[in-house]
């Protein structure tokens, strides 16, 4: 592909990076990333992916913007209240960068649509808030050989890992969703808004690294941070041979949504 003069200017701070350069920027412009959930994690992630010039960004979210979202979901603004999050997100992305093609899915991710949707993308960014969907994303990626970034936040804490085929998956670490009501959601326990920004931005960085093929991804390790002590820890996690989806004797061979919602919202 050929860059226009305007593109060379727009992406000049990427292009002068030795590890990115023209080739890396072309990979980004040809890259396709799906952001699952235009919420606390998906908002900052989508904004940075857009600014970076990721050529195709998919956004899936069945929700509308609520006033309680605005404390951290920075892709949405006050006039967006009651509007579908995917529409609000698409408008912001297009304003930031007309190079980006945005595909919106105003629906829930389900066992029926997940494979069709995922097949259109190079990388999946999980910004969902519920465990059944988190496990579904993991299983779909493991079974179809797709890479994704997991992200989780609560209160002042965040965690993220990146899965690529052959490496530790989310189920290697967490066998199955927690019992209903045990793990509080952000609406129950609260979350510092900027913590979502830190985590979502790390996830976007992983997507950009994946597309350009630079650096070391967060594979086989979890990055865990606490904003109060402002400490980051990267913990190595080996693959689990008893993992129900990628272990020696997998019990999950087809997709199934495990009905254990994180809370009664």
């Amino acid at each position: 592909m050929n860059f226009t003069d305007i593109q060379i200017e727009r992406y000049s701070r990427h292009i002068i990076l030795k590890d990115v350069g023209v080739e890396g920027q072309i990979k980004l412009l040809e890259g396709k990333v799906l952001v699952v959930g235009a919420g606390g994690l998906g908002s900052p992630a989508a904004l940075y992916l857009a600014a970076a010039g990721v050529g195709t960004i998919g956004i899936i979210d069945n929700d509308v913007v609520d006033i309680t979202n605005l404390q951290r979901q920075i892709i949405h603004t006050t006039p967006d209240i009651n509007r579908p999050k995917v529409i609000s997100a698409k408008e912001k992305i297009e304003k930031i960068n007309p190079d980006v093609k945005v595909k919106t899915y105003h629906e829930l991710l389900t066992t029926d649509n997940i494979n069709d949707i995922f097949s259109e993308y190079d990388f999946i960014l999980d910004g969902t808030d519920n465990f059944p969907t988190k496990f579904l994303i993991n299983d779909a990626c493991v079974l179809s050989g797709k890479s994704f970034s997991h992200g989780g936040i609560i209160k002042f804490d965040g965690q993220t890992m990146t899965y690529t085929p052959g490496n530790t998956c989310y189920r290697c670490v967490f066998n199955s969703p927690p019992p209903k009501g045990l793990v509080p959601s952000c609406s129950q326990a609260g979350v510092l808004g900027s913590v979502a920004g830190i985590l979502g931005t790390i996830q976007a960085t992983e997507a950009l690294k994946y597309l350009t093929g630079i650096g070391e991804l967060l594979t086989n390790r979890f990055l865990i941070f606490n904003a109060l002590s402002m400490s980051f820890r990267s913990v190595h996690f080996n693959r689990n041979e008893n993992c129900p989806v990628c272990g020696i004797n997998p019990t999950i061979t087809e997709l199934k949504l495990e009905e254990m919602p994180v809370c009664d919202l």
Binding site: G37, G39, G40, L41, G42, D61, D63, T68, N69, R72, Q73, D126, G127, T128, D129, N130, F131, K134, G151, G152, I153, I154, D157, G158, Q159, V173, F174, P178, V183, S185, C186, S187, V191, A196, F222, I224, V235, F237, V262, L265
Partner: peptide
């Protein structure tokens, strides 16, 4: 390692 969800709600 603790379970952590996202920030949608």
């Amino acid at each position: 390692l603790y379970f952590m969800g996202g920030g949608e709600k």
